[in-house]
Design a protein around this nucleic acid. Structure first.
Lengths: 220, 220
DNA sequence: CCTACCGATCGGTAGG
DNA sequence: CCTACCGATCGGTAGG
């Protein structure tokens, strides 16, 4: 969404310079622009998740968004830019949701085990909720991202992981978590992330069940 | 390797019929054939793992095996057949290693927690050992496999998982594993499988360290 | 296993 | 955002 932000700002600036007379047409343009752009992001996220980045055609994405084959390149300068936007959008949403949980009133007063439960539950929600294709794409397609853009994402990922560390450290100190904190974080997030491969909302377990099972598995 | 076995038997039969006089040239032919085929499998596994199936070219694979662009199709009838052979080879190797551990003398007498430790350690070895690209490919590229062949693999996978179930059930009964056995298996294998994404043999931890951390994390 | 090649598809662009 | 299109690449094959 950084490229995005830039594009939007540029568009706004240009339109603003022209605003002087008449109904501000730019408002309509921007809104449509946003819709089409968002439709492309959603279509890309869904297809990248189901088929993978390399196996998905920009024509597939265009068709899923109701456009002609060349039109995605009006909104994104390349297929890779689309991938990056999907991933950044996913990480921003995940960070926002996780921060909202951490900052909710009374959260800090909760025992560490309950704080972990919240992190786990929100994480499952971000991965497995309906229409949440963005984060799975970012987890499983980062190989397809050029190094420079992967580095830009790395910072968001590291912010996300840093939300877990104080909680895991507290649990380790109290003896509820026996594994070394660093490896525990990698193993725990792995167990959660892998659920993307097997979770089926139509089958037995719910996100709540998964959360309970994970807590029972990880904590003494 | 099923297609394979068929091919090899056919070649042997043909060559045997021609054996009557002179140095048995077929021996050389067969050896070369096997070598080239194995070279292709290894190159494919390595490239599929690093770049993904769809992003890897049959020309890449041919070059890595020292061949010309059309030559892989002398050994495999399609790119997908190559992928399937890589995955089946990986699963066979994993099953073989895991069974060898389970059937080793004295194993049945071990406490369930030690049996789990063995499963975990062998699993990490299969995933992270030098040159072990076959199983990671099978874990992360099964999306790219046609349904029919994915079903053929499903049986091997289910055999592999069935090695874990009695051990997990025993641990659950004794209270050392608190999560429901079915979800525990999925979460545990997920934690291990995800190590493919972050493990770096040149960095701190060894497979032994990972095994210890996993055991401390999962068991009371 | 190589040489030479084909048909299809793909990411991306110009110009409107 | 569409139309029309280009150059490159890709999986696969024939024929030796």
């Amino acid at each position: 969404m950084t490229d995005d932000a830039t594009l939007l700002e540029t568009a706004t600036a240009t339109a603003t310079a022209r605003r002087p007379r008449g109904r501000p047409r730019k408002t309509v343009d921007e809104r449509d622009d946003g819709n089409r752009r968002i439709a492309l992001l959603g279509a890309a996220a869904s297809l990248f998740r189901r088929q993978g980045f390399a196996a998905t055609t920009t024509r597939d994405i265009a068709a899923a968004a109701g456009m002609q084959s060349g039109s995605p390149f009006y909104h994104f300068k390349s297929k890779e830019a689309l991938l990056f936007a999907v991933m950044e959008e996913g990480m921003h949403a995940a960070l926002e949701r996780q921060r909202a949980a951490v900052q909710s009133p009374g959260h800090a007063a909760l025992p560490a085990s309950e704080q972990l439960r919240q992190l786990v539950q929100v994480h499952f929600g971000v991965l497995l909720g309906p229409g949440n294709d963005f984060v799975p794409v970012m987890l499983y397609e980062s190989r397809s991202l050029p190094e420079q853009e992967r580095n830009r994402l790395a910072q968001l990922i590291s912010e996300y992981e840093s939300l877990w560390m104080p909680v895991l450290t507290a649990l380790h100190s109290s003896g509820q978590l026996r594994a070394p904190v660093g490896l525990a974080r990698l193993l725990i997030l792995g167990a959660l992330n892998w659920s993307v491969q097997w979770f089926d909302p139509k089958k037995g377990a719910s996100v709540q069940d998964l959360t309970d099972a994970a807590m029972a598995l990880f904590l003494n």
